[in-house]
Computed example of a mutant assay.
Amino acid sequence: MGLRVVGAGFPRTGTTSLKAALEQLLGAPCYHMREVFGRPDDAAVWRDAYAGVMPDWHRFLDGYAAGVDWPVSWFWREVSAAFPDALVLLSRRESVERWYQSMDQTVLVGARRVMSGDSTRPPTLAHLTPEQAGAMEEMVQALFGGAFEDPNDRDKVIAAYERHLDEVRATVPAHRLLEWQPADGWQPLCAALDLPIPAEPFPHENSTADMRARINDAGGQ
C-alpha cells in the first residue's frame, strides 16, 4: 500500500478530524503526530530526516494510506515526491487569526516548554526510555524551531504559516493540490479521491477546548 494522500497543512488545521475522515474513506491508517507517541522510536527517524538523513519513505510509512499533520506535513516535498500519484492536501483554517489563537493555546504550549530547556517529562510520556524521550524533544526542537524560529513571537509564527501556504500553492501542480478547511467537510475530499460521500457527519475532533483539557491533565505538555 502506498500513500494516497500527503498532508501539507500545519498543525491545528483540522488534522485530527482529517485523520479520522481519511481512515474512514480509505480503510487504512493515517499517520499523524499522534502516531509518534504510540511509536516513540519514530521520533529519531523524524529527527534524523530534519538533519537531512531521509528514511525509505515507502518502508517507513508502509501500511498507511495517508499522512497529515506534522511531522509528515513538514516533509511534504519529500513525501509527495516519493508518492507521485498521491493527492497533496493543504489544510488551513478560515483565517490566520483563528489558526494562531488555536496554536497559541495548545500545540505551542508544549513546544515552548521543550524549547525553553524544561526537561520535565509529562505523565503522558512517562513510559518513554531516556533515548526515546531525548529523540522526542530533539524532534520537537527541530520542527518548531525550524518552522517558527521563535515560537514566542506571534508575528514570526504567523509569517511562517502564511509563507508555508504560499510555498505549497506555488509548488504543487493544480491537478495534485486540494486546499481544504474544516468547514468544507466531506465533499472536496471525496471529489478529489473519487469516492462516495459517507452518510454520517464529517468528524470534528480535537477542539481547542479538548486539547487544552489534555494539556492541563498532562501537567502543561
Rank of each mutant, 00 (worst) to 15 (best):
D210G: 08
E23W: 08
R121D: 13
L26C: 06
T171N: 02
S102K: 02
A213T: 11
L178T: 05
A82R: 11
E97I: 03
R77T: 11
M139I: 09
G63P: 07
H204N: 03
R214Y: 14
V109K: 01
N216Y: 15
D155F: 05
G185H: 01
A174I: 09
E97S: 02
D150V: 00
A8T: 06
W70D: 05
Q132C: 01
F144N: 15
A199R: 04
P173I: 14
E179H: 03
G63Q: 02
R112Y: 02
P122N: 01
R59W: 00
R4T: 07
S116H: 05
A133G: 10
W186M: 01
R93S: 04
E149C: 13
T120F: 09
S119I: 11
R176E: 01
V109C: 00
W76K: 07
A160I: 10
L143F: 10
E149K: 15
A51G: 14
L189G: 01
L177M: 08
R112N: 03
A21Y: 04
R92Y: 14
W76G: 04
R77S: 13
M103K: 03
M139F: 14
P40L: 00
V114F: 06
P188T: 08
P203F: 05
Y31R: 10
R214W: 15
F60R: 15
L143K: 05
G110K: 01
P130F: 11
Y31T: 12
M33R: 02
V79Y: 07
A81M: 08
A81C: 11
A191N: 12
